[in-house]
Nucleic acid binder design. Sequence first.
DNA 1: GGAAAATTTGCGAATGACTTGCAAATTTTT
DNA 2: AAAAATTTGCAAGTCATTCGCAAATTTTCC
Lengths: 127, 127
Amino acid sequence: MTKARKAILEALKASVQPVTAMMLAKEPSLSYDQATVYRNLHYLEELGMAQSFILHCTEHGTERYYSYRGADCGIHHHWFHCEKCHRFIDLGSCGYDEQMHAWEKKWDFTITDHTFFLTGICSACKA
Amino acid sequence: MTKARKAILEALKASVQPVTAMMLAKEPSLSYDQATVYRNLHYLEELGMAQSFILHCTEHGTERYYSYRGADCGIHHHWFHCEKCHRFIDLGSCGYDEQMHAWEKKWDFTITDHTFFLTGICSACKA
DNA sequence: GGAAAATTTGCGAATGACTTGCAAATTTTT
DNA sequence: AAAAATTTGCAAGTCATTCGCAAATTTTCC
């Protein structure tokens, strides 16, 4: 595992919030080329050490957000995104296996991935 | 309501599958400029007559898909997307109001939107 | 009904996230 | 530690989507 790879994985692991490739590329403590960041995020996701979703927010446009996914942090997570302060709230581990299994049976398809997230205004921003 | 607007809304209404702006722009029977298509899809969504979600598929890249949303077609729908044949399967009306209300209570945020869809291989493509 | 005001359209150029080709640098193999 | 394989940085490219602006259409008002 290369230096860049390790650094990017560590950054993901350390971040409480999902982050974009751009955020990581601009992080002074990392300072890897954006192409390298993009490539390594792909790599880490393929390995199952990261998970991502694409989110559009009026202020920041459409971007893919990554978060760490390790044995220690449980499985697939879902998030709420505040459109005012742009913070994410972790809704916890995904609890939809059962429902998805039911759908697979009903429609006879095979689910390889699912996307779920919420957007709105968080408690702090409402006040 | 302008001619373009009407035509685009009709196209959405007529389509069984969610469609992208590009698909509509390239439809010979419509032949409106892409900027017009994009602008009117935004308009229709703001009015609540269309709904959309962003989906990334390896073959077609990242695009926003729109579908009709009228009194006659029920409320918010969710979809399964087959990564082989690129067809969508309508999973029916969204049944998550309760769960989302529970989340709003638990976290004290206000949900303005939610995104949910599945990707995988459909029945026909497995065979 | 028709002229003025307001909105929308088409065109071309711009934006911004993400990707790619390629030579140099690093990592892995042996 | 040299050869082989992979990864990196850079610069240029791609592609969905947006924007500015003048011309065309739609709406408003008399």
